[in-house]
Nucleic acid binder design. Structure first.
Lengths: 194, 194
DNA sequence: GCATTCTCTTTACATAGGATAAGAAAAACG
DNA sequence: CGTTTTTCTTATCCTATGTAAAGAGAATGC
């Protein structure tokens, strides 16, 4: 007995949600398409909504010393948005851009906050979601601290994040690994010669 | 009207807690001293409890290729523990060691889970705490991806994390910055000559 | 279908950081 | 105290990555 809505199935991977609780969320959802190179949020803007990707892919980057540093990618069936700006109420330091035409369900963060307040199940969802977010960030940070760029690349090849290799331009992957595109090209050559 | 218990004050920075809710937590607490070089959790062990540091300092490291890689420090008035192992139920990959004799209040993670289940305020606390944890990790990750080791060091000097510089041996700070102690020593020399 | 643009690779050069080892300084300890 | 151990610095050498520029290849658009 799988629930029919893809977002509900996603949410219920974290914690079960009653029909009543789900109805509150469903009322918040709007479908939107973001065209390639357009943005869900730009640096300096206030984070007001989160989204769930139905199809497409997005990248998330910071601008530092005038350069775009891509730090994360999002694909279909995942939640995306300027969490930090939403949580802190400060202007977003990051930009989230569609890498291809991307179809999303969006909902306002204030709506999610009301769900948190109204229902213990939603509060729990928020906690568990954030726990998994933190685990992912911790793993990423430890990889950056302990592994060489080459190790990080080979690990990406053999991980459950193959999608990144398959669908994302190398310049952005290089950023994600903490190196330049030139260096990634060299690493790829080295590996292909082994 | 500040609450008298330091842990309660810490928790109420995130969300208010009623006397009743606080009483449930207080019943879980045990005071413990961990001597210098002893560990709260070792790699391979199951994470079963979290702690709040009353005095002292601890470091948190992963063992990778036979070397200890210190990735975080904890000081008085902060929560510490093998969160990830507690959350996932998997053996801990990290070790948390006291850098000096450290006095803690510890509580079992299963107890916290019961608080989550029994009270919406505790569930909210869990969410908000984890949100701040995630924000800290994101900032750390972005710094590792976008800044040079020298920039990371100078930023540490001028941040609210000065405690790290003041109280932690340089070999561990080097790890935290993602470089070797030798390299940190060179960076310090470079900076002192400017 | 041709031209333009974007992406990836390659080269040459400069440099910061890694590895190792040895010495200096500081801390721990009996 | 004085000894031992640990921590930090310095020196040498080496290598991977950064930068810049040019060329090859792919994708895009008119």
């Amino acid at each position: 007995m799988t629930s029919s809505h893809p977002l509900r199935r996603h949410i219920e991977q974290f914690t079960p949600i009653s029909d009543e609780d789900w109805a509150m969320m469903e009322a918040l959802l709007t479908e939107r398409t973001i065209r390639k190179h357009e943005c869900m949020i730009r640096e300096g803007g206030m984070g007001r909504e989160l989204g769930y990707i139905l199809e497409g892919e997005m990248r998330h980057y910071y601008t530092y010393h005038g350069e775009e540093k891509t730090t994360y990618f999002y694909f279909e069936n995942s939640l995306v948005g300027p969490y930090i700006s939403c949580i802190t109420g400060q202007p977003s330091q990051l930009t989230i851009e569609a890498l291809s035409d991307t179809k999303l369900l969006v909902f306002p963060y204030t709506g999610l906050q009301k769900l948190y307040a109204q229902s213990k199940a939603w509060e729990r969802f928020g906690r568990v979601l954030t726990e998994y977010l933190a685990i992912g960030l911790e793993e990423r940070m430890v990889g950056l601290l302990t592994q060489s760029p080459e190790e990080r690349y080979t690990q990406l090849l053999s991980s459950n994040k193959k999608k990144i290799i398959e669908r994302i331009p190398q310049q952005h992957i290089a950023n994600y690994l903490g190196i330049t595109p030139v260096s990634l090209s060299r690493i790829r050559k080295r590996l292909s010669e082994k």
